[in-house]
Structures are given as C-alpha cells and as structure tokens.
Amino acid sequence: MTRRAVALASLGASGLYLAGAATFPFGSSARPGAGFFPVAVGVLLCLVCSVFAFDTLRRAGVGEAAGSPMPADDRKRVVATMAGLVAFCLVVPWVGYSVAAALFVAWLLRRLGEGRWPAIALTAVLTAAVSYYVFAVLLAVPLPQSVFFD
C-alpha cells in the first residue's frame, strides 16, 4: 500500500515537474535554452516513475506481504521528533536561537528519553547557552536573532 502510494505520488510529482519545465524557453538543439535540460530530466523522471508505478501496481497483491505496522510508541517518537523540528523552524524567527534551542532540547529529551523535568530543563538551558557560545561567539557562525530583542 505504502509503495503504491509512493509510486503514484512520484508519477504525479514528475508530471508536475515536466509541466513546469515546459514553461521555460526550450530553444533548439543548436541553441538549447533554459528549459532544455529540465525538460530532458522531466521526461527521464516521468519514464522512470511510469515503470515504477506500473511495476508496483502489477505486483500489488501478488506475494506482497502486509508489512507489520509500526508500534504506537515508536511512531510517537518519530512524530515527536519531526514535530520538534517543525516547531523549531516556526518559532526561531520570533524568539531567536537561544530560546528556540532550549525549548527544542527540552521537548526532545522529554519525548525520547525518560528524564525528570528539572534535569531536562537544566540540560536544555546549558545546551542552548554552550552551543550559542561555541557557534555564535567562538566560531562567529550567524544564528537567528529574536525579532523581539533586536
């Protein structure tokens, strides 16, 4: 089922890519334009995805073992990690690196590990502070600043 969904999604995406590529100036063989290579890539992708989709649909149900579903706890940890990443990206422009990093670390330590809140909070604050010092101060790496504290 998952494989079938991936195959059909790939086919759709490759079709969209080819349609987008076709909007750029194609030129000619002697003077290829900006769309020449993307169209070639799009055609290649559509061909590969068509074979993939055809192959997957042909095999559907024939000797296809239903994969065992992921246990709920495992799935929760994956979703929590992804949610943490997305939340970091959403809040970092507003609250800046230090606060976002501390929240991110606390969230993940709580969701992935088994620690208590005081220890988690301390680790989160220390990690955010040390990483800020190492990257922003020592290595002069630019980090996102808060819009509130600029």
Partner: peptide
C-alpha cells in the same frame, strides 16, 4: 536520546548558518 538531540541541534545550526536563511 541525548546524542540524537545534540545531532539535530547541530543540523539546525549548520543548515541555518550556510546562508542565514530559513
């Protein structure tokens, strides 16, 4: 879990610092 968290934080810092770009 500690290691995973640090790796992700490093990834985020590393990705942003390339172009200061969200």
């Amino acid at each position: 879990h500690l290691l995973s968290t640090f790796v992700l934080l490093l990834c985020l810092v590393g990705a942003f610092s390339l172009n200061n770009s969200m």
